[in-house]
Design a protein around this nucleic acid. Structure first.
Length: 587
DNA sequence: ACGAAATAG
DNA sequence: CGTTCTATTTCGT
């Protein structure tokens, strides 16, 4: 954790490129979901509509002049033969997103798999890459085999380790491997392995579920996400070394980032970009309204900011200061400009942190209409909670029989929140404020909404009366409200039944991929494996799930062939492999 | 803990 | 660029 050299008032940035991170972006995701449901659509121009706009369209439609955020009327005029489907119900997208995410997480055995929206996933595949680095036969790199599993050496794919899979940046790569410093050569090999893993995973997404994707491969979330954009759709790009700048080489990271508009950098949003542009251009804020699609705008690049004389974290902190700005923006942004991003790919969660349902209105100013809308939003919220926060109980288990319950809550959100956006709030003096800001109030979540017997509609009605109306009164004590938005949310969910390591399927994978160094330091003479009776109850469930999710691809191999643990050499029967791995992973 | 703000798809 | 409907993180209190 030494990305930033320690210093009081200024920070010295240091590269740290010890990870391999893949960033997946599913191509025109919404359109692909409809194509997966109905493959006949693949050859047709297909667009997905929400309200009055095309939110995305397939590449056949793009060839005919359709594009994102296009008005339906315009789309119809330009391409009357286009198939336009409604995509306002997000359920199918949420389901497809989960399916693909599960495949990526399972195949890469990655503890760290982070979703952004429905169509992006980061994988930190460092452990898997480093394992495979040690398995390479340097005398026959062209005929390498990438092992996806520590326990099953046959699970994986052959590949040619003398070349990258897919595209690289920079293309005109003139520096040969031998020119690079040893650390850069290692990085080169790790990224090369990453490119082949990415290629394999893209193939699996397409073969198993029919989705094409675009991938970026590098050492940080920042760069992996940006570099993927160079070859889309259905492509992948690896940002190749050198990453570190020295006398002979310019850093490819800097070379790549410097041409980007400042606002294109993830983490530099609208506000920060505006302040940076203003600072570089040395003139008051530039307007940002009224731009036509594809129109020009003030272009300030990462390179322009990065190369400003006297630039420091302190200077950036002063430039970027404002209400709500994080205190470490200076260091963070200076890092981003230099392609340094220590942000970890976060662990897979079993439940989201919050669920919210909202709707917007042209006018909402009567109590009757308010009650109806709160009722509708509440019902949708309870439905979503039952989908996203529960796990269906197997009717054959004891638990279901003893409790008579149909499902188990995976989380109990402690907080209920009501948010509104007043359209023209009336002050005491009768003047009008123009604001699109949201205001909210929250309260403890009433426990009755976790009822398994209550009808959604009934629970929703009670939620409105007992919890939401009091919150609404807190928000709008004075009369004369007129709302343009209502939002009802439950927040603060934490993964339950996940008290410590080894208590969920995710950490089983994590354990199985734990760092090689640690595993090698285990005492090889320890007795193993432990009796199944000694395992925690969660083990059985985890074993079943793991078998299902990682071993189902094997077509044969149902024979009892003897398998010896690669760590300690003891024979381990198939059914006990997970337990055995676990034994090694925890001291 | 609560409410707002910033960022992102 | 905007908007809509989300979701996450972080700030100040």
């Amino acid at each position: 954790m030494l990305e930033y050299g320690a210093a009081k008032s200024y920070a010295i940035l240091r590269r740290k490129d010890e990870r391999v991170i893949l960033h997946f972006d599913y191509d025109c995701f919404y359109a692909s979901v409809f194509e997966a449901e109905n493959p006949a659509l693949k050859s047709l121009p297909l667009a997905v509509q929400q309200k009055q706009i095309i939110v995305t369209c397939n590449y056949e439609a793009r060839r005919r002049g359709l594009h994102k955020l296009q008005l339906i009327t315009e789309a119809r005029r330009i391409c009357p033969e286009a198939v336009i489907v409604l995509g306002e119900d997000l359920t199918r997208f949420r389901d497809a997103s989960k399916l693909l995410y599960t495949l990526l997480r399972t195949l890469s055995s990655s503890e760290r798999a982070e979703k952004l929206g429905f169509d992006e996933v980061w994988l930190d595949v460092t452990s898997l890459i480093d394992e495979n680095l040690t398995l390479l036969n340097k005398n026959d790199l062209a005929n390498s085999f990438f092992q996806l599993s520590l326990t099953d050496p046959t699970l994986g794919f052959p590949f040619d380790a003398t070349v990258y899979a897919g595209s690289v940046f920079p293309k005109d790569n003139d520096s040969s491997l031998a020119d690079l410093a040893p650390s850069e050569q290692t990085l080169q090999m790790r990224l090369l392995l990453g490119s082949h893993l990415a290629n394999y995973l893209r193939l699996q997404l397409e073969e198993q579920h029919g989705y094409t994707s675009t991938v970026g491969i590098s050492t940080t979330k920042l760069v992996s996400k940006l570099v993927g954009n160079l070859n889309k759709p259905k492509g992948q790009t690896t940002l190749i070394p050198p990453y570190e700048q020295d006398e002979q080489h310019e850093s490819n990271i800097t070379r790549f980032l410097d041409t980007h508009d400042i606002g294109k950098i993830p983490g530099i949003g609208f506000k920060l970009a505006q302040r940076l542009r203003e600072f570089v251009l040395n003139r008051p804020a530039t307007f940002d309204a009224g731009l036509v699609y594809g129109g020009t705008k003030e272009n300030v690049t990462v390179g322009q900011v990065r190369q400003l004389p006297g630039l420091s974290a302190d200077l950036l902190a002063k430039v970027l200061a404002g209400p709500g700005t994080p205190h470490d923006v200076g260091v963070k942004v200076l890092g981003l400009l230099n392609g340094i991003d220590p942000t970890e790919v976060s662990q897979a969660r079993t439940v989201p942190r919050q669920i919210s349902i909202e709707d917007s209105y042209l006018r909402l100013d009567t109590m009757k209409e308010l009650m109806e809308q709160l009722q509708s939003l509440s019902a949708r919220l309870v439905e979503r909670m039952r989908i996203d926060l529960t796990e269906t109980l197997d009717s054959s288990t004891n638990e279901a029989v003893s409790t008579g319950e149909k499902w188990k809550w995976l989380a109990h959100p402690p907080t209920l929140r009501l948010t509104t956006r007043p359209r023209a709030p009336l002050n005491e003096d009768g003047t009008r404020q123009r604001s699109f800001k949201r205001i909210s109030r929250s309260a403890p979540t009433p426990s009755f909404i976790f009822s398994q017997t209550g009808l959604v509609e009934v629970l929703a009605e009670r939620l409105v009366k007992e919890a939401l109306l009091p919150l609404f009164k807190k928000l709008h004590e004075r009369s004369g409200w007129n709302l343009s938005l209502l939002n009802v949310a439950v927040t603060g969910m934490v993964d339950e039944g996940k008290g410590g390591p080894g208590r969920d399927i995710g950490s089983m994978f994590r354990a199985a991929e734990g760092s090689k160094k640690e595993l090698d330091q285990q005492d090889p003479f320890n007795a193993c494996p432990p009796d199944e009776d000694d395992l925690e109850p969660e083990y059985e469930e985890a074993l079943e799930q793991q078998e299902f999710s990682t071993w189902e691809e094997q077509e044969e191999d149902t024979e009892e062939m003897e398998y010896r643990c690669p760590r300690c050499g003891v024979p381990v029967p198939t059914f006990a492999r997970v337990a055995h791995e676990r034994f090694h992973s925890y001291k």
